[in-house]
Amino acid sequence: MPPAHVLVPLDGSPLADDALEHALETFDCRVTVLNVVAPLDSAMSEGGLLEPGEDRREAASERADNLVARARDQAAAVDRTVETAVETGDPADTILAYVDDHDIDHVVMGGHGGSRNELARRLLGTVATAVVGEAPVTVTVVR
């Protein structure tokens, strides 16, 4: 059965843009794009390296707004609309919670490889690996 509600987590990377393109081309259903802003004091944000001041919070909020606006434009270019959401938290945990709380039945996301030890993490990236491993729904990883 085809999905009724697809979630596309966006992080500003080209692979995330490709994931949105794939979702819009492949699924004729409700699509929500989600940008997760990591807390400024977490290791996954620039705040983990730099002082978390008000300027950093504003910059993170502005970046999130720009990402979801760009997603709306990308959808409009193919005569589609997307719902948008911005949440704060650990990216993988927040994506998984969003799936549970919003009747998501498919996730399409970009995968990021990197210089990590485990093969799956190298192929997919840590957030994608966690979502693939723990999501109660089908996950498509775009590479």
Rank of each mutant, 00 (worst) to 15 (best):
T126Q: 03
A77L: 03
E118R: 15
A69E: 07
R143E: 12
D101M: 10
D55M: 13
R80Y: 01
A128V: 10
E51R: 09
G113T: 13
A59R: 12
G114Q: 11
P3E: 01
I95H: 06
F27T: 02
R57N: 01
T140Q: 13
I104V: 09
L123M: 08
G48I: 13
V78T: 11
V31I: 15
L123T: 12
A97C: 09
P3D: 03
R80W: 11
E58D: 15
L7C: 13
A71S: 09
P39K: 05
N66Q: 11
H22A: 09
A69S: 08
H106I: 09
T94I: 13
A69W: 00
N35M: 04
L15H: 11
V107Y: 02
S45E: 08
G12S: 02
R80F: 04
H102M: 11
E21S: 15
V37C: 00
V141Y: 01
L15F: 12
V99H: 01
V8C: 11
G47C: 06
L15T: 10
L49W: 15
D100Y: 00
H112P: 11
M1A: 15
V108N: 04
L15A: 14
V132W: 04
N117P: 04
R72M: 05
V131A: 12
P3V: 05
A75T: 06
D28P: 03
H106K: 14
M44F: 12
T26P: 02
T32Y: 02
H106Q: 06
D65R: 06
S115E: 14
L20Y: 03
P9I: 08
A130W: 09
L15E: 14
L123P: 00
D90L: 03
A38T: 04
H102D: 05
A59G: 10
D105W: 10
R70Q: 02
T84W: 04
L67K: 05
S61C: 09
P39H: 06
D41L: 06
R57P: 07
A60T: 05
V108R: 15
G125H: 05
V107T: 05
V108T: 13
D17K: 10
P9V: 03
H22P: 00
D11L: 07
A135F: 08
E118G: 15
V127D: 03
E21N: 15
I95L: 02
V141F: 07
D73P: 00
G12T: 13
D11V: 06
H5L: 14
A76P: 03
I104T: 06
A92V: 03
E46Q: 07
Y98D: 11
A4L: 12
D18I: 05
R116W: 13
S115N: 13
E87W: 00
D100I: 11
A64I: 08
T88F: 00
R56L: 15
G47V: 06
P91K: 08
L34P: 03
M44K: 09
L49Y: 07
D17R: 08
V37Y: 01
T138C: 07
R72K: 13
A23R: 09
R70L: 03
S45K: 00
H102Y: 07
L24W: 12
